[in-house]
Simulated scan of single mutants.
Amino acid sequence: MRITGYRSLATVHEWGRPVGDVNGVVASGVTEVPVLLLETDEGLTGVGLGSHPDVHRVFPALEAQDPRAVTSLYDRMLSYVFKSGHGGHVFGTIGALDMALWDLKAKIAQEPLWRTLGAADRFVPGYASGLEYALTDDELVSFYGSWAERGFSGAKVKGGLDIDRDVRRLNAVRDVLRVNSERPALMYDVNESWGAHQAVRLARSVEDRVDLTWIEEPVRRWDVAGHRTVAAAIRAAVATGENLTGLEHYRALLDAGAVGVVQTGSVWGITHFLRVSTLAYGHNLPVSPVGYNANPVAHAAASVPNHLVTEVQDLTFPVGLRVDQEIADGGIVLGDAPGLGIEVDEARIAAQAASGQWSVPGGPHVRPVDAGLRLTPGAAAHTAGSRRPYEGITK
């Protein structure tokens, strides 16, 4: 079997609510979902999800190759782009292609990917996380109530700008999940919105009022010293890694003892997750992939010995994708369909009229101009040229 070509599709996920974090919100609740189809000369097609704008540049590394040689092809793609580097869009493209290769490999074996990767159990423990920053307190309680009904005993709450609001919402979610556990796991994600000058003070302020399981991305993703300072000063674990795009980015954090829960971005692919998991395992650390549409990395999570929990962001799937899995019993129950278990209904995708809004200027992919430069968490954000860094300071 040989790889012969690829096709790109674009569908959307309809969340039914505003989604985002402290950096911005998609008010429409509609986000784009790029789909990559990897074709072979024997009629099998591999499915990869995630942004892949550089596919025209990376695909020649795979053309005419045997798709079963997945890990070798992953390194081949990295080697193919080594002069320009493998960050950002390039790494996302490699991740989507890698996902499609693993899908093909398992389809060739006529088994679900979790079996191909050696997992013994189809169940993947998870925690609920809805990008729920824009919801009101009442909407937040209602939202996590549906997860409690599905057996979840852990959840993530987005915050970082208003500590009192964050504490109130964390405690409200805790109360909702107590139907399944006396001490639910609470994850607190501030999405790099704090500076090193304030991270310890703010983290301790929250911890004084909430029993946190972990605090996520308290400072910039590459800030080893900042993460290490926070990790040494608080009781909860520090979690980070979803935005790192290579093992070389993880080593300094892990070697410094700056992270307690090692995260990976699901959009970076299966091989990336497996390699980061091995690195974390060598440091006696657990690994946790962040959520993504259709939860493709859950197959890999089921196969590694140090998987802790997988982030699950919604109870529905993107338009035109049928996914062989169930969200139940506090996690993901993977099915028996070959590969990733994702069927693509191209006619349904072509017929949908909605357009994704993730990349709008105010969306959560845009870092606010004063992120990390506030002296008080409640100080209002301002546009460039008008920011007043001392506004809101209590004397």
Rank of each mutant, 00 (worst) to 15 (best):
298 A>M: 02
64 A>D: 15
203 A>H: 15
250 Y>S: 02
149 E>R: 07
202 L>S: 02
317 F>S: 03
247 L>H: 09
184 P>I: 03
153 S>A: 15
254 L>V: 00
111 E>M: 06
114 W>I: 09
108 I>D: 13
185 A>S: 12
276 V>F: 08
37 L>Q: 04
133 Y>W: 15
177 L>P: 05
161 L>Q: 09
87 G>A: 10
135 L>G: 14
373 L>K: 07
306 N>I: 12
190 V>M: 00
175 D>T: 08
389 P>Q: 09
269 G>H: 02
22 V>P: 07
169 R>P: 05
138 D>Q: 07
201 R>Y: 06
390 Y>G: 13
283 H>F: 05
338 P>W: 10
267 V>L: 05
372 G>Q: 10
48 G>N: 05
274 L>K: 00
243 N>M: 10
148 A>H: 04
376 T>Q: 11
358 W>C: 08
389 P>G: 01
136 T>D: 07
13 H>E: 04
299 H>M: 05
23 N>G: 00
192 E>A: 11
21 D>I: 10
382 H>Y: 14
321 L>S: 01
218 P>N: 06
8 S>C: 04
383 T>H: 07
124 V>F: 14
315 L>K: 13
19 V>T: 03
314 D>Y: 07
126 G>K: 07
84 S>P: 03
336 D>N: 12
160 G>C: 07
143 F>W: 10
230 V>Q: 08
295 N>Y: 05
192 E>M: 09
164 D>S: 11
390 Y>M: 14
228 R>G: 00
82 F>M: 14
259 V>W: 04
275 R>K: 12
257 G>F: 02
285 L>K: 13
121 D>I: 10
229 T>I: 03
267 V>G: 01
137 D>S: 11
168 R>G: 15
157 V>C: 12
391 E>I: 15
340 L>G: 06
33 V>W: 02
353 A>P: 01
277 S>Q: 09
196 A>H: 03
140 L>M: 12
11 T>K: 03
223 D>L: 00
11 T>A: 00
126 G>E: 11
